[in-house]
Design a protein around this nucleic acid. Structure first.
Lengths: 231, 231
DNA sequence: CGTGTAATTGATGTTAGTCAAGAGCAGTGG
DNA sequence: CCACTGCTCTTGACTAACATCAATTACACG
């Protein structure tokens, strides 16, 4: 399926937004639109010539699988995010859809050519890599030190932010893109601990659960302070 | 002090290695050589127009300071590493020398001009950013799941690797660039736990301590397997 | 050779993990 | 419509690993 940049939901925010209309349509000719259902894998650690892609809608996870087979979620990808390790012969991570996703996929070779041809695109991707680095370090800071409550609270706020269309206000009612197990995995906790923290937050009147995946921020301000200071 | 690329210890590995002699000397004219003593700060979170730099020798740490004033080490920088967040108006992190360091420092504006002028340099920095991202995710995977022994073991191996001049073999005797407190901080542990793990590794015959900071890898192969499986 | 900081070691406490059981829910088929 | 199956999530009781508190010892540096 060919690409329709004109109707692209992230046309203003994705890396390719730096290109002119004409440049973009040339690049688009090399790419293709891909749909993934929840649970499907875009590529797997060890794949050679793994493709790269821009996420248009949905959410994905980046995971590494340990020598003993346990999975660890290292990052989430939100719309307009770029996926792909252009400089490594083999992919290091698995990239899996957390929900149904639309992607704009390019062969590695096509993207390398585009980088050589469009320095502005390279800069845009460089910038995005620095943002990813920043996000990774933020997660590192979060998981490294804080208590379970703080981890869960911070993740909820961050997901509320990502679920919102406005860049400054979090959504007040939204669905978690992650199962309890995935949240636990991402935060370095267990399912049980996550579940306990969520009910603690609910009892404290900070959030309300809307079914299994839904969350309502009842008191976002207090949520932002600390969840450990509660009774 | 002006730059002497001809004698630069990382001339083949740093990002600027992709430039021609001539291009490089033009860039060098905009930069300056800087020496930092152990403990000195290159720049601080919140600094505007923070400079950027290539590390020539020594080791540095990237830290964030929490709202409550506690520091968290997010990354280490080794020679040939690039420092600087080109796309953010303010620095997010502190960057501090762990040992005496030599750096090659550029004003942000000069580096931005160089990026526009030299697409190959942008690609090189993009590549380096992806490597940093990879390192950050590796650290995330390490700190997230594993036991204290595994964390300490993995860090020792990684530092032995960085201390070696060969890219494939770790150094067998080297000095830790970090204090116990810094190791603990980096791994999300406490000083005491790190200390206990080190003595456990020494008692198990896997390493030997050479003074306070020195480490000898007595049995690197066994070290690589698991330190939890010991008596 | 002192003095202060960093590291080690031991005793005790707390948090989150583990084990285990039950509740809520969606999809299936009688 | 209701029971059945297979999930995920929740909740409780117990445990283990690491943190915390408290000395003591080893180093580095003046």
């Amino acid at each position: 399926m060919s690409l329709a940049c004109a109707t692209c939901p992230v046309r203003d925010r994705a890396a390719c937004a730096v290109l002119s209309e004409e440049e973009r349509s040339t690049l688009a000719a090399a790419g293709r639109s891909v749909q993934l259902s929840k649970g499907e894998t875009l590529f797997r650690a060890g794949d050679s010539d793994a493709a790269c892609a821009t996420l248009l809608s949905g959410a994905m996870k980046v995971t590494s699988t340990d020598h003993d087979g346990t999975e660890r979620i290292l990052a989430l990808i939100h719309p307009a995010g770029f996926i792909g390790e252009l400089f490594r012969p083999f992919a290091d991570y698995d990239v899996v859809a957390l929900s149904d996703c639309d992607l704009c996929v390019f062969a590695r070779s096509a993207m390398e050519r585009a980088l050589d041809r469009h320095p502005a695109l390279t800069q845009a991707l460089f910038r995005r890599a620095q943002e990813d680095l920043h996000a990774s370090r933020a997660l590192l800071a979060l998981t490294g030190k804080n208590s379970a409550s703080e981890k869960v609270t911070a993740l909820i706020l961050s997901l509320a932010q990502a679920a919102s269309d406005s860049p400054c206000h979090p959504a007040t009612v939204f669905d978690l893109p992650l199962s309890r197990g995935e949240i636990a995995n991402l935060l370095g906790l267990t399912i049980e601990t996550v579940s306990r923290q969520l009910t603690k937050l609910e009892r404290g009147g900070l959030i309300a659960k809307r079914g299994t995946r839904g969350i309502e921020l009842v008191d976002p301000a207090r949520l932002q302070l600390a969840s450990d200071l509660l009774p």
